[in-house]
């Protein structure tokens, strides 16, 4: 999947995370993280974001994160939404069905 434009998902409300994704052709994945729990969970948040981005087959993107204490599954939802918006595509709900054999991140 290709990041075609800058897109945003999420809010700055408590328990949410605002994710901004931009194209970064040929320069790999760059994650910029601001978080109210950076010292405790910064590494885990980065790892989660890397997993989700990778599950979409994306190698090049800038991902800016403004985290307000989002739990893991909220981060996954917001990153997925931002990716689909940036790639101008719908989320493929059947991608992880048994017949398609892909593992959910």
């Amino acid at each position: 999947m290709e990041i075609r434009k800058t897109a945003v998902a999420g809010t700055l409300e408590s328990s949410d995370i605002m994710v901004t994704i931009r194209p970064n052709p040929g320069k790999g994945l760059q994650i910029e993280l601001e978080s109210v729990v950076l010292s405790m969970f910064g590494d885990e948040i980065r790892k989660t974001v890397e997993e989700v981005v990778s599950s979409f087959g994306i190698e090049d993107a800038v991902v800016e994160l403004q985290d307000k204490g989002a739990i893991d599954c909220v981060i996954r939802a917001r990153v997925s939404a931002a990716i689909c918006r940036a790639a101008e595509t719908k989320f493929d709900w059947s991608a992880f069905d048994p017949e398609n054999g892909r593992e959910e991140a």
């Binding site: 998902a9 999420g10 739990i71 893991d72 599954c73 909220v74 996954r76 939802a77 917001r78 997925s80 939404a81 689909c84 918006r85 719908k90 989320f91």
Partner: peptide, 15 residues
């Protein structure tokens, strides 16, 4: 709608 759908899916499935 797109973001809410993903959010609800993840929260119901995992939390």
């Amino acid at each position: 709608k797109d973001a809410a759908r993903l959010l609800v899916y993840h929260l119901v499935k995992y939390q």
